[in-house]
Write a protein that binds this DNA or RNA. Sequence first.
DNA 1: ATGGTAGACGATCTA
Length: 255
Amino acid sequence: MKIVTWNVNSIRARLENITTWLRENHPDVVLLQETKCQNHDFPQEAIEDCGYNIAIHGQKSYNGVAILSKFPLEDISCGLPTFADDEQARYIEAVTNGVRVASVYVPNGGDVGSDKYHYKLSFLAALKDHLKATLLYEEAFVIGGDYNIAPTDDDVNDPKGWHEQILCSTPERKSLRAILNLGYSDAIRLHHHDKGPYTWWDYRSGSWAKDDGLRIDLLLLSPQAVDRLAGAGVDREPRGLEKASDHAPTWCTLL
DNA sequence: ATGGTAGACGATCTA
């Protein structure tokens, strides 16, 4: 069972790239972030024609998350129950083929110390509370998403340039580590022990050409999911195409 | 301190 997380940076602007990739790679489950449209504007038919069921949680212009699955989607819930007042569409969860999955788009955070930064830390605390509660189900659970945090300097091409900047500041990393310390594992790190692999390259400053990337898209696995983990990786190919998202699809496979 | 690029949307905001 192949599960992918992918920040597509607008599903409508990226529809051709996405459907082509789905037909070539036929993953079982795709966790999308930054769909950037309201539910009634989501290109349902084009995705269904690729063989997927769909669960969406959208909003106008910004954010937006979705789950695509070749299997039926059950127990769909939108938003974090621990962050109920949030009007931003950043979390969706469902059960499919016996696996609980979630797509999360953690706030970017703007500049360190800004209002957006504190909102990011609040969101991460709420995410931790929810994942702590859900761990008690003792299910295979995969939380894929754009966490907007590079866990360590090994996840950054240029750690000096990013030192204590957004995506790399110590409070953000501590918030992520607190989630991992509940008992979740970073799937990519179980299979890759060197620097990288990166998942995001800024559109600006020729970052892709220089491979000046960061690993901020993660798949967190419950212990029951880790027991079934067979592989994990990043598909860099779509990042090099015309009209590419600035993020690459990141995948894992469960036995 | 600013700028570099991209998307939504229709002037800026977000990343």
